[in-house]
Simulated assay, not measured.
Amino acid sequence: MHIDIDKDSCMGAGQCALTAPDVFAQDDDGYSTVRPGREDGGGSALVREAARACPVGAISVSERAG
């Protein structure tokens, strides 16, 4: 799994961090970020739900090839 956050679109609503706090956090400016070591989703079943919860669609989740 690969998680991408469009930093230009992110408005810092924090829905991702509320939905999957083990994977997402907010940086010092209040914008979403993926926690270090969790770039692959960390096995969390809530990653896709967190992407859907983003009010501006700034998070995309895809499967890694291979």
Score class of each variant (00 low, 15 high):
Thr19Cys: 00
Ala20Thr: 05
Ala50Glu: 08
Arg38Ser: 12
Asp40Thr: 14
Glu39Cys: 08
Ile5Thr: 02
Arg64Ser: 12
Asp29Phe: 09
Ala17Asn: 07
Val61Cys: 04
Gly43Arg: 02
Val23Trp: 06
Arg52Gly: 07
Thr33Trp: 00
Arg35Glu: 05
Gly41Thr: 08
Asp29Arg: 13
Val56Trp: 05
Ser9Trp: 03
Met11Trp: 14
Ile3Gly: 08
Thr19Tyr: 01
Gly30Met: 10
Ser44Val: 07
Ala45Met: 10
Gly66Gln: 10
Asp4Ala: 15
Ile3Cys: 02
Lys7Met: 08
Asp22His: 06
Gly42Asn: 06
His2Phe: 10
Ile3Arg: 04
Asp28Gln: 13
Val34Cys: 09
Asp29Glu: 15
Gln26Asp: 09
Arg52Phe: 10
Met11Phe: 04
Gly57Leu: 04
Leu46Ile: 00
Ser60Asn: 14
Gly42Ser: 04
Arg64Leu: 04
Cys54Ser: 01
Pro21His: 03
Ala51Leu: 02
Gly30Cys: 10
Thr33Gln: 13
Gly66Val: 02
Gln26Gly: 10
Glu49Lys: 08
Asp28Leu: 09
Glu39Gly: 09
Arg52Leu: 14
Tyr31Phe: 15
Tyr31Asn: 12
Ile3Leu: 12
Ser32Trp: 05
Gln26Ile: 12
Asp8Leu: 01
Asp22Met: 12
Ala51Glu: 01
Asp40Tyr: 11
Arg35Val: 13
Ser44Cys: 04
Val56Cys: 08
Pro36His: 13
Gln15Pro: 00
Gly43Lys: 04
Cys10Asp: 12
Arg35Leu: 14
Val61Thr: 11
Arg52Asn: 14
Met11Cys: 02
Ser60Gly: 11
Asp4Ile: 11
Thr33Leu: 15
Ile3Asn: 07
Cys16Glu: 09
Cys16Gln: 11
Asp40His: 09
Arg48Thr: 10
Ala25Gln: 15
Gly43Trp: 03
Arg35Cys: 02
Phe24Ser: 07
Thr33Cys: 12
Arg64Pro: 02
Gly57Ile: 09
Gly42Val: 12
